[in-house]
Amino acid sequence: MALSGKRVFQVEIKSKGDIFHNLWKSNPHQIPSLTPTTIQNCQTHDGEVGTVGSVLLWNYFYDGKDCVAKTLIKDINDDKKSITFEVLEGDLLKQYKTFVSNVQVDNHGSNNVVTWTVEYEKLSPSVLDPDTLMEFCKKVAKDIETHHLQN
């Protein structure tokens, strides 16, 4: 059984893709107010928000428990509307040796597609693939969409 894996998940949103991308890039501290049942807090731990190399500390509710993750922004591509995070510390690293996620938005008129790509290496063959995390990401995207459609 392979320990390394990759998961790709897409969700269509009606809110503007540019707003979604800029939220993750430049205003991640606002995400908890838009998704209070999933993400409770986001703080800049090191560096400047919106720049490669900055470190963010996230508190979130996942799989029935309070969790934490410290992430490094590895890449920002404004042309592709994508941002890549690498988990440096936290609950995910109890099961995975490495965990890198990318969130990208493709504009398609009034509808947009958010694509999450997760690349990971499990600590052991008994660790499950992060499929439930993909459902978590879908809920986050839909919560953000709901907020932006109401405004």
Rank of each mutant, 00 (worst) to 15 (best):
V127T: 06
T115L: 02
D129F: 09
R7W: 01
G50K: 11
E145C: 05
K80S: 11
S101F: 06
D106R: 12
C67R: 13
S54L: 02
K70M: 04
F20H: 06
Q40N: 11
S15H: 08
L23I: 07
I83H: 01
K81F: 03
Q40D: 09
Y62W: 13
S126L: 07
Q40K: 15
I39M: 14
G109V: 03
L133N: 13
G109T: 04
F9L: 10
G109L: 03
T35I: 01
E89M: 03
D129W: 09
K65G: 13
S15R: 04
F61M: 07
H21A: 04
V52N: 09
H45G: 01
L128H: 13
K25V: 15
T51Q: 11
K142C: 00
D63T: 09
S82Q: 10
L93G: 01
K65V: 06
T117K: 09
F61S: 13
G64E: 07
V87R: 05
L56S: 10
F9T: 15
K122W: 03
N59C: 03
E48D: 04
Y120C: 06
L149D: 00
L123G: 03
L133M: 11
L56M: 08
I39R: 13
L3F: 08
S82K: 04
T44L: 11
N77I: 11
S110P: 00
W58P: 06
T146D: 14
T117R: 04
L123I: 09
K80E: 13
M134G: 10
E145H: 05
L88S: 02
M1H: 10
S126V: 00
T146K: 12
I13Q: 06
I144V: 13
K16T: 03
V100E: 11
A141Q: 04
L149F: 02
M1P: 12
V100N: 10
V105S: 05
F20P: 03
S101A: 09
A141T: 08
Y120K: 02
H147A: 14
L149N: 10
F136V: 12
V11Q: 07
R7L: 14
D131L: 15
A141C: 10
T98E: 04
Q104I: 01
S26G: 13
N111V: 13
K70I: 02
E86A: 09
L93C: 04
